[in-house]
Amino acid sequence: MPDSEPRAAAPRVYLIAAHPDWSESRVNRLLLEAARQVPHVKVRDLYGAYPDYDIDASREQSLAQAADLLVLLHPIQWYAMPALMKLWCDEVLAYGWAYGPGGTALTGKDVWLVASTGGPEASYHPQGYNRYFFDAFLPPYEQTATLCGMRFLPPLLLHGAHRASHADIEAHVGVFQQRLASYPDWPELEDLGACPVVDVPTTDRPLPDPHTEA
């Protein structure tokens, strides 16, 4: 019998989850539990790992750099990510590491936003109380990915999480888990181009303080 073709290594996924109170979560808690059942997914509960907000940036950089796909899992709070996930971005996605001269550690990776909103989809409309379609709140995520040389994949969203039925939540969790397990074999990825190359001139950064120790 001829030797079989060598199997490609499973893609490495680093899922970064943030919820200030998991006991109050109807959706994200179940998504987190589902992710932990997928073999090649490394899960980080930010509020569990860093309750004092003292993020180990070096450790997080190692985990992010080792992954093929970064997943951001969180509820939308005031039209953005929770505070600790924002701090993760501030401290981990450093100049000279994730972007700027020499900042190529994440180049070529994918980013997937998995988020829930309290308001229903109809509220994200020019005639709704949120006044904009939800896509209007995505540019900070997209541009962060682009600046770091990563592809921003189509998000997985669940609107109206406060009133979603158990059946709808269960179906959503099933889709999420299936997508995690099947990455990168998603049909829509074939139509996504490579991430554009973004140059950040050194002149756009402050000069180093000569009185600061190296």
Rank of each mutant, 00 (worst) to 15 (best):
residue 123 S to C: 13
residue 88 W to F: 14
residue 119 G to P: 05
residue 87 L to K: 15
residue 121 E to N: 06
residue 28 N to I: 03
residue 84 L to F: 06
residue 60 E to V: 12
residue 94 A to P: 02
residue 102 G to F: 05
residue 126 P to E: 12
residue 122 A to M: 11
residue 115 A to W: 00
residue 129 Y to Q: 12
residue 67 A to C: 12
residue 106 L to Q: 07
residue 34 A to C: 09
residue 75 P to A: 03
residue 128 G to M: 09
residue 88 W to P: 01
residue 21 D to A: 13
residue 23 S to W: 04
residue 33 E to A: 15
residue 23 S to C: 11
residue 130 N to Q: 15
residue 121 E to G: 05
residue 98 A to Q: 08
residue 66 A to L: 07
residue 24 E to T: 13
residue 16 I to H: 04
residue 143 Q to W: 00
residue 116 S to L: 05
residue 42 K to C: 11
residue 96 G to K: 06
residue 83 A to G: 08
residue 63 L to Q: 08
residue 116 S to K: 09
residue 122 A to V: 13
residue 48 G to Y: 02
residue 30 L to D: 07
residue 31 L to A: 08
residue 134 F to E: 09
residue 116 S to E: 10
residue 86 K to N: 09
residue 89 C to H: 10
residue 123 S to N: 13
residue 40 H to V: 03
residue 108 G to S: 10
residue 40 H to K: 09
residue 51 P to T: 05
residue 132 Y to G: 09
residue 17 A to F: 01
residue 82 P to S: 11
residue 49 A to D: 13
residue 139 P to D: 13
residue 88 W to Y: 15
residue 113 L to W: 01
residue 134 F to I: 14
residue 32 L to N: 00
residue 100 G to M: 00
residue 83 A to F: 00
residue 135 D to T: 13
residue 108 G to F: 12
residue 126 P to F: 11
residue 121 E to F: 07
residue 19 H to D: 01
residue 91 E to S: 07
residue 80 A to I: 06
residue 69 L to P: 03
residue 32 L to W: 14
residue 39 P to V: 10
residue 119 G to H: 06
residue 97 W to H: 04
residue 93 L to M: 14
residue 48 G to E: 02
residue 82 P to I: 03
residue 72 L to Q: 12
residue 128 G to C: 10
residue 127 Q to N: 11
residue 92 V to C: 01
residue 35 A to P: 00
residue 55 I to M: 05
residue 45 D to Y: 00
residue 30 L to H: 15
residue 36 R to S: 08
residue 50 Y to F: 12
residue 47 Y to W: 03
residue 116 S to P: 04
residue 97 W to P: 01
residue 83 A to I: 00
residue 72 L to N: 10
residue 47 Y to G: 07
residue 89 C to P: 05
residue 43 V to H: 00
residue 124 Y to I: 12
residue 72 L to Y: 10
residue 76 I to S: 13
residue 73 L to G: 03
residue 110 D to P: 03
residue 57 A to Q: 12
residue 29 R to S: 11
residue 81 M to Q: 15
residue 95 Y to L: 10
residue 45 D to N: 08
residue 128 G to P: 02
residue 85 M to P: 02
residue 36 R to L: 08
